[in-house]
Design a protein around this nucleic acid. Sequence first.
RNA 1: GCGCCCGUAGCUCAGCUGGAUAGAGCGACUGGCUACGAACCAGUAGGUCGGGAGUUCGACUCUCUCCGGGCGCACCA
Length: 697
Amino acid sequence: MPASQQELVRRFLSVKPGRGRHSVRIALENQGFLRHIDVYLELQKRLEGHLRSVLAAKYDLQLETIPLETPPDLKFGELATPIAFELARSLRKAPKVIAHEIVATLGTVEGFAGFEVAGAGYINARLDRAAAARLIAAGETQHSSKGLLHAMVEHTSINPNKAAHIGHLRNAILGDTFVRLLRAAGQKVDVQNYIDNTGVQVADVVVGFLHLEGKSLADVRLLLEDLKQKGERIDYYCWDLYAKISQWYEQGSEEENAARKKLRYATLHELEQGNNETAEIAELISTAVLRRHLETMLRLDIEYDFLPRESEILRLKFWEAAFEQLKETGVLYYETEGKNKGCWVMTRPGAEIADGETNEYAKVIVRSNGTITYVGKDIAYHLWKFGLLGKDFCYKPFFTYPNHECWISAEHGDEPHPHFGGAQAIYNVIDARQSDPQANVIQALRGMGYTEQADRYIHFSYEMVALTPRCAVELGYDVSDEDLARPYIEVSGRKGFGVKADDLIDKLIAATRAEVDARQTGRDETERQKIAGQIAIGALRYFMLKFTRNSVIAFDFKDALSFEGETGPYIQYAVVRARNIFRKGGTTPEAVLAEFAATDPAPWLEGEAAQDIWALWLRAARRTLVLEQCISTSEPAFLAKHAFQLAQEFNNFYHRHHILTEEDPARKVFLLATAAVVLRELVVVLNWLGIESPEAM
RNA sequence: GCGCCCGUAGCUCAGCUGGAUAGAGCGACUGGCUACGAACCAGUAGGUCGGGAGUUCGACUCUCUCCGGGCGCACCA
């Protein structure tokens, strides 16, 4: 993308080296625009800097930041500041008076047409629209490379004992989109998917194979082979088995259940030990299920770089290395009194305990039987992520994507291998219910003196995806009266209650395929299927991204299968419309933008009639601003909203102005340039959201 | 009991570091395909921003309190 934009800039600057263009080129170079062209951000910074120097000169005020906002209506200009209100008290003058004084001192600023006072004391700034439009049309180059970190994003992390469901889809889509945003901003990002292959959930399905189905290791091998030949999904098989075994633990008499639970923990222990037949079954199953998860996510264009597994964290003695550091720094201490007697514990964040008191609320890290809790293992893992553990995984290739290899942790690896870990900033896409343990890990890092790392440890939390009661009934589940009265019902793998990811994707593709078949009668099977897939994935990804992270999604097929209104397909449709204009017009966006660069757009940008089109140009120019906001707040939803609003304004423009029949050739170029700019922006933003832009739909 | 999240139009949700008349989608009603494809557009109706107090020139936004809903607070992960 940056390459083609640079090309645009180059073309813009060199295609017509007439006198007019030359002056623009000089201006661009003087402003440093060739290195960083983003109209909105640049003009904001320029205005802010100028205001700051004016305030310093006139009132001897040194202000850190000056509030700038987008006025509610273009009649108030393109940028505004309410700074006069803030200064009213300290300067002992009316805001309006201050605003007038500031405007009188502002003079002229490059890129701005003028300033004025409005309302009770707002200072409104008007852009030099023609100049701004030329810059917007030229596009932008890459971001400045200052302050870029090596980041690591962990997402998906599904227990490899059952099929992925819609909750996992939200996690993976949020995580993958955020990876794309960080990369778009120029950061180096490693993508990790943590695999808990030795936990109680995997142990449970192993118990199911061994004791519910009476299968041996050889039987499990046969089953895997058999499913493969029949083209059935092992993760679906485990989904049902996991639900059955979870019930089995509670179905028997009290003595039976106690015995079954014992079996469960004995199995778990065997998995942790390794080198036995039970562990081998677990390895077979968890690896097969993991492969299925990667296939499911690949349907959504989601890829990973590295799969660290808990088995290696255990076997490669990560904990032992972490334990030493934790003891040395005093983060962990041995409890000799109270309910945690005999355990190694750490103080919880925010806890205040008087000297000599026993901290009953401490977090246990090493149990009295010597085993390590989940938080303990996670501390060791996160020390590794930051390169602070002094140990590394061994690596093996595991899953080959069209453009790169995904590696998995191993006890004895291959050489050569890429290196993971040693990140400067980490993002953990983990649901909000795990914020306590996440806080514990951060607290441990901080306690060990790794404060910088603790500050760059971001729990990218999000709320769950639940089912509406109506949806649960539709799926044929038994729903209690109590649950029927709730706004939503939590998905539960243990109960086998939920919507499987592949089922939803299949359903979406079937629905989009029906729509495509109705419209694309001239296209063949493969083309139709490709388009249907692009639209289905666009619909799904947008659906998961349109909600802000801390809003619970109450899932319903009616909403998820909708292709109208605020949806991915709506935005994709705007792209297709824009493309059709160029196709039917026998030209290209590139050619139009090159021609546009040689024109004066001023006549089409002024006056009441131009307001809507100019608003569309301004919206198109906001991409980098929105990207930065998304990254600083860890909130991809803002970009999803931006894409929708841009598409919406474009559709309005599309109806109001019929471009190809426009008789004034100069105006036609302007209208085509408008479509070219919006098309370019939509494609870039959709790509950042992981949504493809179909050629037709 | 302690902590976190949520409460905005009939439904589902936006609302940027406090700023100008509170927005969108869906649903309802009305209108628009001889146009670059109607998976679209335009219009109408619909809101005490859960209640109350406070801070402020200004509060959907910040503080406190109450009400209602959800989730955490294991020697489970």
